[in-house]
Amino acid sequence: MFKVASLLMTPAAKYLMLAFAILFPLVAANEYQVYVMATAFVWAIAVYGLNIITGFCGQLNLAHGGFFAIGAYTLGLLTADYGWSFWPAFLGALVMTAVLGFLVGIVSLRLKEHYFAIFTLCVGFIIYLLIDKWEELTHGAIGVRDIAAPYGFGLVDFTDTTPFYYLVLAFLVFAIWFMGRLSKSLLGRTFIAIRNGDELAQSLGINLMRNKVLAFVLSTTYAGLAGALYAGMVRFIGPEEANINHTFDMITYLLVGGIGTIMGPLLGTVGIVWITQSLQFLEEYRMIIFGPLLVLLVIFFPRGITGSFLTWMHRKSQALAPTKKRQENKVKTAQNREAESNA
Protein backbone atom coordinates (compact mmCIF):
# COMPACT_ATOMS: atom_id res chain seq x y z
CA MET A 1 0.00 0.00 0.00
CA PHE A 2 2.69 2.43 1.01
CA LYS A 3 4.80 1.39 -1.96
CA VAL A 4 2.09 2.01 -4.50
CA ALA A 5 1.43 5.39 -2.99
CA SER A 6 5.03 6.40 -2.72
CA LEU A 7 5.27 5.86 -6.45
CA LEU A 8 2.38 8.28 -6.79
CA MET A 9 4.41 11.05 -5.23
CA THR A 10 7.41 11.11 -7.53
CA PRO A 11 7.61 13.79 -10.22
CA ALA A 12 7.41 11.12 -12.91
CA ALA A 13 4.16 9.93 -11.39
CA LYS A 14 2.78 13.44 -11.63
CA TYR A 15 3.40 13.47 -15.37
CA LEU A 16 1.86 10.00 -15.59
CA MET A 17 -1.21 11.26 -13.79
CA LEU A 18 -1.38 14.22 -16.13
CA ALA A 19 -1.07 11.88 -19.12
CA PHE A 20 -3.86 9.75 -17.70
CA ALA A 21 -6.05 12.79 -17.18
CA ILE A 22 -5.43 13.86 -20.78
CA LEU A 23 -6.21 10.41 -22.12
CA PHE A 24 -9.14 9.82 -19.80
CA PRO A 25 -11.93 10.91 -22.19
CA LEU A 26 -10.56 8.44 -24.75
CA VAL A 27 -10.57 5.49 -22.36
CA ALA A 28 -13.71 6.39 -20.43
CA ALA A 29 -16.58 3.97 -20.94
CA ASN A 30 -19.07 6.72 -21.62
CA GLU A 31 -19.61 10.46 -21.57
CA TYR A 32 -21.06 10.29 -18.10
CA GLN A 33 -17.72 9.20 -16.67
CA VAL A 34 -16.02 12.16 -18.33
CA TYR A 35 -18.66 14.39 -16.80
CA VAL A 36 -18.09 12.92 -13.34
CA MET A 37 -14.37 13.43 -13.66
CA ALA A 38 -14.85 17.03 -14.78
CA THR A 39 -17.07 17.60 -11.73
CA ALA A 40 -14.41 16.08 -9.49
CA PHE A 41 -11.81 18.41 -11.02
CA VAL A 42 -14.01 21.44 -10.43
CA TRP A 43 -14.38 20.51 -6.77
CA ALA A 44 -10.67 19.80 -6.55
CA ILE A 45 -9.92 23.38 -7.64
CA ALA A 46 -12.10 24.66 -4.82
CA VAL A 47 -10.43 22.26 -2.37
CA TYR A 48 -7.04 23.68 -3.41
CA GLY A 49 -8.35 27.05 -2.33
CA LEU A 50 -9.39 25.66 1.03
CA ASN A 51 -5.93 24.15 1.28
CA ILE A 52 -4.31 27.60 1.08
CA ILE A 53 -6.19 29.17 3.97
CA THR A 54 -6.81 26.05 6.07
CA GLY A 55 -3.97 23.74 5.09
CA PHE A 56 -1.15 26.26 4.83
CA CYS A 57 -2.35 29.14 6.93
CA GLY A 58 -4.15 27.04 9.55
CA GLN A 59 -7.41 29.00 9.61
CA LEU A 60 -10.50 26.78 9.36
CA ASN A 61 -12.69 28.63 6.88
CA LEU A 62 -16.25 27.34 6.99
CA ALA A 63 -17.52 29.88 4.44
CA HIS A 64 -15.64 28.27 1.58
CA GLY A 65 -18.74 26.70 0.05
CA GLY A 66 -20.36 30.12 0.22
CA PHE A 67 -17.63 31.64 -1.91
CA PHE A 68 -17.98 28.77 -4.36
CA ALA A 69 -21.65 29.69 -4.63
CA ILE A 70 -20.82 33.37 -5.06
CA GLY A 71 -18.56 32.48 -7.97
CA ALA A 72 -21.28 30.34 -9.51
CA TYR A 73 -24.02 32.94 -8.98
CA THR A 74 -21.91 35.83 -10.24
CA LEU A 75 -21.29 34.01 -13.48
CA GLY A 76 -24.82 32.71 -13.67
CA LEU A 77 -26.56 36.03 -13.05
CA LEU A 78 -24.22 38.06 -15.24
CA THR A 79 -24.78 35.76 -18.20
CA ALA A 80 -28.43 34.86 -17.69
CA ASP A 81 -29.86 38.19 -16.49
CA TYR A 82 -27.42 40.84 -17.60
CA GLY A 83 -26.47 39.51 -20.99
CA TRP A 84 -22.75 39.24 -20.39
CA SER A 85 -20.95 36.62 -22.39
CA PHE A 86 -19.10 33.86 -20.60
CA TRP A 87 -15.50 34.99 -20.37
CA PRO A 88 -16.11 38.54 -19.13
CA ALA A 89 -18.59 37.11 -16.61
CA PHE A 90 -15.98 34.54 -15.66
CA LEU A 91 -13.52 37.30 -14.92
CA GLY A 92 -16.29 39.11 -13.08
CA ALA A 93 -16.81 36.06 -10.89
CA LEU A 94 -13.13 35.96 -9.99
CA VAL A 95 -13.06 39.66 -9.18
CA MET A 96 -16.27 39.37 -7.16
CA THR A 97 -15.00 36.49 -5.01
CA ALA A 98 -11.64 38.19 -4.55
CA VAL A 99 -13.23 41.48 -3.47
CA LEU A 100 -15.77 39.85 -1.17
CA GLY A 101 -13.01 37.60 0.15
CA PHE A 102 -10.99 40.71 0.94
CA LEU A 103 -13.89 42.37 2.74
CA VAL A 104 -14.79 39.27 4.76
CA GLY A 105 -11.11 38.63 5.36
CA ILE A 106 -10.25 41.98 6.91
CA VAL A 107 -13.07 41.54 9.41
CA SER A 108 -12.87 37.82 10.15
CA LEU A 109 -9.11 37.33 10.23
CA ARG A 110 -8.71 39.58 13.22
CA LEU A 111 -10.40 36.75 15.11
CA LYS A 112 -8.41 33.88 16.49
CA GLU A 113 -8.97 30.18 15.97
CA HIS A 114 -12.42 29.25 17.23
CA TYR A 115 -13.85 32.70 16.69
CA PHE A 116 -12.70 32.66 13.09
CA ALA A 117 -14.25 29.24 12.45
CA ILE A 118 -17.55 30.25 14.04
CA PHE A 119 -17.56 33.60 12.26
CA THR A 120 -16.99 32.03 8.87
CA LEU A 121 -19.64 29.41 9.61
CA CYS A 122 -22.05 32.30 10.07
CA VAL A 123 -20.78 34.11 6.97
CA GLY A 124 -21.37 30.93 4.99
CA PHE A 125 -24.89 30.80 6.30
CA ILE A 126 -25.54 34.46 5.56
CA ILE A 127 -24.45 33.83 1.99
CA TYR A 128 -26.89 30.93 1.77
CA LEU A 129 -29.74 32.97 3.26
CA LEU A 130 -29.09 35.90 0.95
CA ILE A 131 -29.09 33.67 -2.10
CA ASP A 132 -32.22 31.94 -0.91
CA LYS A 133 -34.17 35.03 0.14
CA TRP A 134 -33.01 37.88 -2.09
CA GLU A 135 -35.33 36.87 -4.86
CA GLU A 136 -35.08 40.11 -6.84
CA LEU A 137 -31.41 39.43 -7.43
CA THR A 138 -30.98 35.67 -7.25
CA HIS A 139 -34.45 34.30 -8.14
CA GLY A 140 -34.44 32.64 -4.72
CA ALA A 141 -35.39 28.99 -4.60
CA ILE A 142 -36.19 28.90 -8.33
CA GLY A 143 -32.50 29.21 -9.12
CA VAL A 144 -30.76 30.57 -12.19
CA ARG A 145 -31.40 28.99 -15.58
CA ASP A 146 -29.90 29.48 -19.03
CA ILE A 147 -26.40 30.19 -17.86
CA ALA A 148 -24.03 30.70 -20.76
CA ALA A 149 -21.48 28.05 -21.58
CA PRO A 150 -17.94 29.18 -22.30
CA TYR A 151 -17.52 30.02 -25.96
CA GLY A 152 -14.53 28.58 -27.71
CA PHE A 153 -13.81 31.48 -30.10
CA GLY A 154 -15.07 29.32 -32.94
CA LEU A 155 -12.45 26.69 -32.28
CA VAL A 156 -14.16 24.38 -29.80
CA ASP A 157 -17.66 23.90 -28.51
CA PHE A 158 -17.60 23.81 -24.73
CA THR A 159 -21.21 22.72 -24.50
CA ASP A 160 -19.87 19.26 -25.28
CA THR A 161 -18.66 17.33 -22.27
CA THR A 162 -15.21 16.42 -23.49
CA PRO A 163 -14.00 19.90 -24.52
CA PHE A 164 -15.33 21.22 -21.23
CA TYR A 165 -13.43 18.48 -19.44
CA TYR A 166 -10.20 19.71 -21.02
CA LEU A 167 -11.01 23.27 -20.10
CA VAL A 168 -11.46 22.27 -16.46
CA LEU A 169 -8.32 20.17 -16.60
CA ALA A 170 -6.34 23.16 -17.85
CA PHE A 171 -7.53 25.29 -14.93
CA LEU A 172 -6.84 22.45 -12.53
CA VAL A 173 -3.30 22.05 -13.79
CA PHE A 174 -2.75 25.77 -13.38
CA ALA A 175 -4.23 25.64 -9.86
CA ILE A 176 -1.93 22.81 -8.83
CA TRP A 177 1.09 24.36 -10.51
CA PHE A 178 0.54 27.58 -8.66
CA MET A 179 -0.04 25.75 -5.39
CA GLY A 180 3.24 23.89 -5.84
CA ARG A 181 5.13 27.05 -6.57
CA LEU A 182 3.49 28.86 -3.69
CA SER A 183 4.27 26.14 -1.18
CA LYS A 184 8.00 26.24 -1.91
CA SER A 185 8.19 30.01 -2.05
CA LEU A 186 8.91 32.39 0.78
CA LEU A 187 5.28 33.43 0.65
CA GLY A 188 4.06 29.87 1.21
CA ARG A 189 6.55 29.45 4.03
CA THR A 190 5.18 32.62 5.55
CA PHE A 191 1.68 31.11 5.53
CA ILE A 192 2.99 27.93 7.16
CA ALA A 193 4.75 29.98 9.83
CA ILE A 194 1.40 31.56 10.66
CA ARG A 195 -0.14 28.11 10.97
CA ASN A 196 2.59 27.19 13.46
CA GLY A 197 1.50 30.04 15.69
CA ASP A 198 0.50 33.68 15.50
CA GLU A 199 2.95 34.85 18.12
CA LEU A 200 5.90 32.96 16.73
CA ALA A 201 5.14 34.27 13.23
CA GLN A 202 4.98 37.84 14.50
CA SER A 203 8.23 37.43 16.34
CA LEU A 204 9.73 36.48 12.97
CA GLY A 205 8.63 39.84 11.61
CA ILE A 206 5.63 38.52 9.72
CA ASN A 207 2.69 40.88 9.34
CA LEU A 208 -0.18 38.58 10.31
CA MET A 209 -3.08 40.51 8.88
CA ARG A 210 -1.53 41.21 5.51
CA ASN A 211 -0.49 37.61 4.96
CA LYS A 212 -3.68 36.06 6.29
CA VAL A 213 -5.81 38.33 4.13
CA LEU A 214 -3.69 37.50 1.10
CA ALA A 215 -4.09 33.77 1.77
CA PHE A 216 -7.82 34.24 2.31
CA VAL A 217 -8.29 36.20 -0.91
CA LEU A 218 -6.33 33.56 -2.82
CA SER A 219 -8.52 30.85 -1.35
CA THR A 220 -11.81 32.60 -2.11
CA THR A 221 -10.61 33.32 -5.64
CA TYR A 222 -9.91 29.61 -6.10
CA ALA A 223 -13.42 28.91 -4.79
CA GLY A 224 -14.85 31.52 -7.16
CA LEU A 225 -12.97 30.03 -10.09
CA ALA A 226 -14.35 26.59 -9.28
CA GLY A 227 -17.85 27.98 -8.76
CA ALA A 228 -17.78 29.81 -12.09
CA LEU A 229 -16.61 26.69 -13.92
CA TYR A 230 -19.33 24.71 -12.16
CA ALA A 231 -22.01 27.16 -13.27
CA GLY A 232 -20.69 27.03 -16.84
CA MET A 233 -20.82 23.26 -16.73
CA VAL A 234 -24.22 22.53 -15.17
CA ARG A 235 -25.75 25.80 -16.44
CA PHE A 236 -28.48 25.70 -13.82
CA ILE A 237 -27.83 26.58 -10.22
CA GLY A 238 -29.86 27.01 -7.04
CA PRO A 239 -29.40 28.08 -3.41
CA GLU A 240 -28.26 24.54 -2.57
CA GLU A 241 -24.86 25.38 -4.06
CA ALA A 242 -24.29 27.45 -0.91
CA ASN A 243 -25.31 24.67 1.45
CA ILE A 244 -22.88 24.29 4.33
CA ASN A 245 -22.64 20.59 3.45
CA HIS A 246 -20.52 21.50 0.44
CA THR A 247 -18.00 23.05 2.78
CA PHE A 248 -18.06 19.92 4.92
CA ASP A 249 -17.59 17.78 1.80
CA MET A 250 -14.57 19.83 0.81
CA ILE A 251 -13.08 19.51 4.28
CA THR A 252 -13.48 15.75 3.97
CA TYR A 253 -11.76 15.68 0.57
CA LEU A 254 -8.95 17.80 1.95
CA LEU A 255 -8.47 15.75 5.09
CA VAL A 256 -8.57 12.41 3.31
CA GLY A 257 -6.18 13.52 0.59
CA GLY A 258 -3.83 15.34 2.90
CA ILE A 259 -4.20 18.80 4.35
CA GLY A 260 -1.34 21.15 3.60
CA THR A 261 0.06 18.97 0.82
CA ILE A 262 0.23 19.58 -2.92
CA MET A 263 -1.33 16.45 -4.34
CA GLY A 264 -3.66 15.78 -1.41
CA PRO A 265 -6.62 17.89 -2.53
CA LEU A 266 -6.63 16.23 -5.95
CA LEU A 267 -6.28 12.67 -4.66
CA GLY A 268 -8.85 13.18 -1.92
CA THR A 269 -11.42 14.80 -4.15
CA VAL A 270 -11.10 12.49 -7.14
CA GLY A 271 -10.89 9.44 -4.89
CA ILE A 272 -13.98 10.22 -2.85
CA VAL A 273 -16.04 11.45 -5.78
CA TRP A 274 -15.41 8.17 -7.59
CA ILE A 275 -15.98 6.00 -4.55
CA THR A 276 -19.28 7.77 -3.94
CA GLN A 277 -20.20 7.43 -7.60
CA SER A 278 -19.41 3.76 -7.87
CA LEU A 279 -21.25 2.85 -4.71
CA GLN A 280 -24.56 4.48 -5.48
CA PHE A 281 -26.12 3.53 -2.16
CA LEU A 282 -23.41 5.64 -0.56
CA GLU A 283 -24.64 8.78 -2.25
CA GLU A 284 -27.23 9.51 0.40
CA TYR A 285 -25.60 7.91 3.42
CA ARG A 286 -21.98 8.54 2.59
CA MET A 287 -21.55 10.59 5.72
CA ILE A 288 -22.13 7.48 7.85
CA ILE A 289 -18.72 6.45 6.58
CA PHE A 290 -17.09 9.82 5.97
CA GLY A 291 -18.09 11.33 9.30
CA PRO A 292 -16.25 8.72 11.38
CA LEU A 293 -13.51 8.74 8.75
CA LEU A 294 -12.90 12.44 9.42
CA VAL A 295 -12.66 11.73 13.13
CA LEU A 296 -10.27 8.81 12.65
CA LEU A 297 -8.14 10.85 10.26
CA VAL A 298 -7.61 13.77 12.62
CA ILE A 299 -6.86 11.37 15.46
CA PHE A 300 -4.56 8.96 13.66
CA PHE A 301 -3.54 10.44 10.30
CA PRO A 302 -3.97 14.19 10.60
CA ARG A 303 -2.08 14.77 7.37
CA GLY A 304 -4.17 12.40 5.26
CA ILE A 305 -2.98 9.99 2.60
CA THR A 306 -0.44 12.26 0.99
CA GLY A 307 1.00 13.69 4.17
CA SER A 308 1.40 10.30 5.81
CA PHE A 309 3.20 8.92 2.77
CA LEU A 310 5.48 11.91 2.49
CA THR A 311 6.53 11.51 6.13
CA TRP A 312 7.01 7.80 5.66
CA MET A 313 9.08 8.32 2.53
CA HIS A 314 11.22 10.95 4.16
CA ARG A 315 11.96 8.70 7.12
CA LYS A 316 12.88 5.94 4.72
CA SER A 317 15.31 8.12 2.86
CA GLN A 318 16.84 9.28 6.14
CA ALA A 319 17.02 5.75 7.53
CA LEU A 320 20.73 5.61 6.79
CA ALA A 321 21.31 8.07 9.59
CA PRO A 322 22.49 6.62 12.92
CA THR A 323 19.09 5.45 14.00
CA LYS A 324 20.07 3.77 17.18
CA LYS A 325 21.54 6.78 18.89
CA ARG A 326 18.60 8.81 17.72
CA GLN A 327 16.17 6.43 19.29
CA GLU A 328 18.05 6.44 22.56
CA ASN A 329 17.86 10.19 22.52
CA LYS A 330 14.19 10.03 21.86
CA VAL A 331 13.58 7.79 24.82
CA LYS A 332 15.56 10.20 26.90
CA THR A 333 13.54 13.18 25.75
CA ALA A 334 10.33 11.33 26.35
CA GLN A 335 11.43 10.79 29.90
CA ASN A 336 12.42 14.41 30.22
CA ARG A 337 9.05 15.50 29.02
CA GLU A 338 7.36 13.24 31.48
CA ALA A 339 9.51 14.55 34.29
CA GLU A 340 8.62 18.06 33.25
CA SER A 341 4.90 17.47 33.24
CA ASN A 342 5.10 15.82 36.64
CA ALA A 343 6.99 18.71 38.10
Partner: peptide, 12 residues
Protein backbone atom coordinates in the same frame (compact mmCIF):
# COMPACT_ATOMS: atom_id res chain seq x y z
CA UNK B 1 -8.40 19.08 14.65
CA UNK B 2 -11.10 19.02 17.29
CA UNK B 3 -13.22 21.33 15.18
CA UNK B 4 -12.93 19.02 12.19
CA UNK B 5 -13.65 16.00 14.37
CA UNK B 6 -16.77 17.73 15.70
CA UNK B 7 -17.87 18.28 12.11
CA UNK B 8 -17.27 14.57 11.51
CA UNK B 9 -19.57 13.68 14.41
CA UNK B 10 -22.18 16.09 13.14
CA UNK B 11 -22.16 14.58 9.65
CA UNK B 12 -22.30 11.07 11.06
Amino acid sequence: HDKIAAIGILLF
